[in-house]
Computed example of a mutant assay.
Amino acid sequence: MKGILAIGLLILSNAFMTLAWYGHLFFKKVPWFSKLGLFGVIIISWGMAFFEYCFQVPANRIGFEENGGPFSLFELKVIQEVVSLTVFTAFAILVFKSDKLAWNYVVGFSLLILAVFFIFKKW
Rank of each mutant, 00 (worst) to 15 (best):
G8S: 11
G8W: 00
L9H: 02
L9V: 08
L10Q: 07
I11A: 12
L12G: 06
L12I: 10
S13K: 04
S13I: 05
S13E: 09
S13R: 06
S13V: 04
N14D: 13
N14I: 12
A15E: 02
M17F: 15
M17S: 14
M17P: 07
M17V: 14
T18C: 14
T18H: 07
T18G: 10
L19D: 05
L19I: 13
A20C: 10
A20F: 11
Y22M: 13
Y22F: 15
Y22L: 13
Y22E: 14
G23Y: 07
H24S: 08
L25D: 15
L25S: 15
F26M: 06
K28W: 12
K28C: 08
K29G: 06
K29H: 13
K29T: 08
V30G: 01
V30Y: 04
V30E: 07
P31I: 02
W32P: 01
W32E: 11
W32Q: 06
W32V: 13
F33D: 04
F33W: 08
F33L: 14
K35G: 01
K35T: 10
K35E: 08
K35Y: 02
L36W: 10
L36K: 05
G37K: 10
L38W: 12
L38V: 10
L38P: 03
F39Y: 11
F39I: 13
G40Q: 10
V41D: 03
I43S: 12
I43W: 14
I44W: 05
I44R: 07
S45I: 03
S45A: 11
S45V: 00
S45N: 03
S45K: 06
S45G: 11
W46V: 09
W46G: 11
G47N: 07
M48Q: 06
A49L: 12
A49T: 06
A49C: 05
F50T: 11
F50H: 04
F51N: 04
F51R: 03
E52H: 14
E52A: 07
Y53C: 08
Y53M: 12
C54L: 14
C54F: 07
F55D: 01
F55I: 02
Q56T: 02
Q56I: 02
Q56R: 03
V57F: 12
P58W: 04
P58L: 04
A59G: 01
A59F: 00
N60Q: 09
N60S: 03
R61F: 04
R61A: 07
I62G: 00
G63R: 00
G63A: 01
G63M: 00
G63Q: 00
G63N: 00
G63T: 00
